[in-house]
Amino acid sequence: MSRESDVEAQQSHGSSACSQPHGSVTQSQGSSSQSQGISSSSTSTMPNSSQSSHSSSGTLSSLETVSTQELYSIPEDQEPEDQEPEEPTPAPWARLWALQDGFANLECVNDNYWFGRDKSCEYCFDEPLLKRTDKYRTYSKKHFRIFREVGPKNSYIAYIEDHSGNGTFVNTELVGKGKRRPLNNNSEIALSLSRNKVFVFFDLTVDDQSVYPKALRDEYIMSKTLGSGACGEVKLAFERKTCKKVAIKIISKRKFAIGSAREADPALNVETEIEILKKLNHPCIIKIKNFFDAEDYYIVLELMEGGELFDKVVGNKRLKEATCKLYFYQMLLAVQYLHENGIIHRDLKPENVLLSSQEEDCLIKITDFGHSKILGETSLMRTLCGTPTYLAPEVLVSVGTAGYNRAVDCWSLGVILFICLSGYPPFSEHRTQVSLKDQITSGKYNFIPEVWAEVSEKALDLVKKLLVVDPKARFTTEEALRHPWLQDEDMKRKFQDLLSEENESTALPQVL
C-alpha cells in the first residue's frame, strides 16, 4: 500500500538533515546492470571481512566470479597478432551492500547512478522477487541517484539526491524531493519508509565518522582530508542543518603536550582565546566558526575552494607581477588587521594563504593565525623552527619566545613576496656552502639577476625593505602599504570589485 501522500506532506515541511535544493538533472540513458558494476546475484546478508577486503582492492568479489566451465583457453599460436591488451577495470570509489532480497550489490565505478523502476536507470528495480513485494509499487520510476562531484583539492564528494514520490531516507532522515545531501561511510539508505532499509553505503575513500566526538558529529558530517601540516590535519565537512561546506582543523593534544602547556602557563585558556579569535572579522582572514574541545581540538573554519598559494608557486613557478601585487596587498591588509588586534601570526607561508577560486584574479585569505593562542608560545615555536624557511632572523637566534615582536610577520611576508615574484625561495638548504640558518640570520638571500630583470624596481625595493635583518629597521605593514609599488588604483579597484562580488555589503578597509 502506498504512503505517498503521508511522505509528500513530510517532504513539504523539509528536513533537518544536511540537504539543499538542487537544479534539474539530465537523465542518464539506460545500460545493462552488469556493465555498471552490479553483481549478477542479489543478497540479503552483509559481507564478511574477506569479501570486503577483496573488493576494496579493486579485484572481483566472490559475488562477481564466473564459473571456469564457461571459459576456455586460447593457445598462444592462435592469439590474433593485432589484439590489444584489455584496459584494467577501474577501482570502485564506493560500494552499496544490499540489505534485502531482490536488490543486488553495487560497485560504484562510474560517477553517476540512477536507481528506480524505469529501465533507463543504471540500477533498475526489475528483479522478479522484488516485483512480488508489497513495497515495489511505492518505488518511483526514478527514485534517487548517487553521484560524486569534484571538491576541494581535486578530491571527490559523494551525494545522494531524492527524486521520489514516497521519499528517500539516509539514516532515517528524509532527504526531500529535489534535494541532495552528502553521503558518508556506513550510511543506511531506506526507500519509501524510513524503516525500509535497502542499502548500506560504503565510501571507500573516507574514514568512519565514529572516531570523532559526538558533539562534533551532531553538527557536522566529516568527509575527506584536505591537507595536513606540522600543526594538524584539515578535513572537509558539512553543516548538517545547511549542507554548507566547512573546513575542520584537528590539532592533536598529545603531539603538542597541550596539557603540560596549560600547567606551565595557567593563564592559557584555550576556550577564552578561541572566543576572541571567533570575533575577528576581516575579508582577508579565514573566519573561525566553531570550536570543540575533546581528546583533540577541532576548529571549524570557513572553507576556501581555490587551494593554497603554495600550489601556484611550487615547482619554480612565478606569478605575474600584477597578480603578485593583488595578492600581496590583501596579505598586508590581513596581517595589519591581526597586528591591530594584538595577534602575531608567526607562521606566514604560502600554505597559509588560501585562494577563493581558481581564477588568477581572486580574493585571498590568511589562515592559521591563532596557533600560539591554542598551542602555547613554546610549543608552537619548537614546531616552526623545524622548517625555518620563512622564519625571521630574530626568531632563530632567540631562546624560547623572548626578543621578537610583530616584525617577524613582515619578514615572512618579504619571503613570500620574493617567491611569488621570482619563482624560487630566497633562502634554501640546497645552497650547501652556507647553512639555512646562517643565510637567514645574515640576510644573504639568493639573488639571480636574469630572473629579477623581469621584475620592476619598485617591487624589488619593497622586497629589500622587508628582508632587513634588524627588526627595528624592517618595514611595518603600514609602511609597506604606503610603498610606491602598491599605489596602484587599478589594483585596488579590482580588489574592491572582487569584494563586491563576494558580498555587496563588504567595504574596502581604510588604508593610510
Score class of each variant (00 low, 15 high):
129 L>W: 11
242 T>P: 07
190 A>F: 00
188 E>Y: 15
5 S>F: 01
15 S>F: 11
166 N>D: 02
255 K>G: 02
258 I>R: 06
271 E>R: 13
87 E>P: 11
110 N>E: 10
76 E>D: 14
109 V>N: 06
86 E>Y: 15
143 H>N: 01
23 G>C: 05
108 C>V: 04
175 V>F: 06
185 N>S: 11
158 A>E: 04
33 S>R: 06
113 Y>H: 10
31 S>D: 09
15 S>G: 10
55 S>A: 06
206 V>F: 07
102 G>T: 14
241 K>A: 02
106 L>G: 15
49 S>A: 09
244 K>P: 03
122 E>M: 15
52 S>F: 05
193 L>K: 03
192 S>N: 10
71 L>R: 03
142 K>I: 12
80 P>C: 06
260 S>R: 15
104 A>L: 13
238 F>I: 02
155 S>I: 06
179 K>F: 06
26 T>K: 07
215 A>I: 12
144 F>W: 01
109 V>S: 03
223 S>V: 02
69 Q>Y: 06
110 N>M: 12
166 N>T: 02
11 Q>N: 03
96 L>N: 05
201 F>L: 11
183 L>W: 02
169 F>S: 04
187 S>T: 04
107 E>Q: 15
142 K>V: 08
79 E>M: 06
205 T>H: 05
255 K>R: 02
227 G>T: 01
242 T>S: 04
241 K>Q: 06
228 S>E: 00
162 D>V: 03
271 E>Q: 07
182 P>V: 01
126 D>L: 11
146 I>K: 00
122 E>G: 11
98 A>F: 03
228 S>Y: 05
93 W>K: 01
270 V>N: 15
89 T>A: 13
189 I>R: 02
170 V>L: 04
155 S>L: 15
104 A>E: 10
254 R>M: 00
181 R>E: 02
88 P>A: 10
15 S>V: 05
102 G>M: 15
132 R>I: 12
101 D>V: 14
164 S>N: 04
81 E>C: 10
70 E>L: 04
129 L>T: 09
215 A>S: 02
272 T>G: 10
121 C>Y: 01
240 R>G: 11
240 R>F: 08
97 W>P: 07
77 D>N: 15
146 I>G: 04
89 T>E: 04
69 Q>T: 02
53 S>P: 10
183 L>F: 07
155 S>T: 06
39 S>K: 06
131 K>A: 02
124 C>Y: 09
187 S>G: 13
257 A>E: 03
181 R>V: 03
188 E>S: 07
150 V>T: 07
142 K>W: 13
266 P>Q: 10
263 E>D: 12
33 S>Y: 06
159 Y>R: 01
145 R>E: 01
66 V>L: 04
178 G>W: 12
154 N>W: 14
215 A>G: 01
208 D>C: 01
207 D>H: 12
82 D>Y: 08
93 W>V: 01
138 T>Q: 02
47 P>H: 10
96 L>K: 00
186 N>Y: 03
137 R>Q: 01
98 A>N: 13
118 D>G: 13
203 D>S: 15
270 V>Q: 15
182 P>D: 00
85 P>I: 07
135 K>C: 08
160 I>Q: 01
245 K>V: 10
225 T>R: 08
131 K>Q: 04
50 S>V: 11
166 N>Y: 02
262 R>H: 02
209 Q>S: 08
60 L>A: 05
8 E>M: 07
32 S>G: 12
238 F>K: 01
174 L>P: 06
114 W>F: 13
82 D>G: 10
151 G>Q: 15
132 R>G: 12
52 S>P: 03
121 C>I: 14
211 V>P: 06
179 K>G: 00
111 D>A: 07
44 S>D: 09
267 A>Y: 11
13 H>F: 07
265 D>V: 02
106 L>N: 11
76 E>S: 15
53 S>A: 06
223 S>E: 13
83 Q>Y: 03
88 P>F: 04
18 C>P: 11
171 N>I: 08
240 R>Q: 04
33 S>I: 07
179 K>M: 01
136 Y>G: 05
22 H>Q: 09
3 R>E: 15
173 E>A: 10
252 S>D: 15
59 T>V: 05
85 P>N: 13
250 I>V: 10
252 S>Y: 12
126 D>F: 13
191 L>I: 02
264 A>L: 06
69 Q>S: 05
50 S>Q: 04
141 K>D: 00
225 T>D: 05
245 K>P: 04
193 L>S: 03
174 L>I: 08
234 V>I: 06
148 R>I: 03
222 M>S: 04
100 Q>S: 10
181 R>T: 03
220 Y>L: 03
81 E>T: 05
16 S>M: 09
183 L>P: 00
188 E>A: 15
211 V>S: 05
175 V>Y: 00
241 K>C: 14
100 Q>V: 14
224 K>L: 01
82 D>T: 11
76 E>T: 13
95 R>D: 06
168 T>N: 04
241 K>S: 07
45 T>N: 11
233 E>L: 10
51 Q>V: 08
257 A>F: 06
231 C>P: 01
208 D>P: 12
9 A>M: 12
150 V>L: 02
235 K>V: 06
72 Y>H: 09
105 N>V: 06
119 K>P: 12
110 N>D: 05
157 I>E: 01
170 V>T: 04
24 S>I: 01
272 T>N: 00
60 L>T: 06
228 S>W: 08
43 T>C: 15
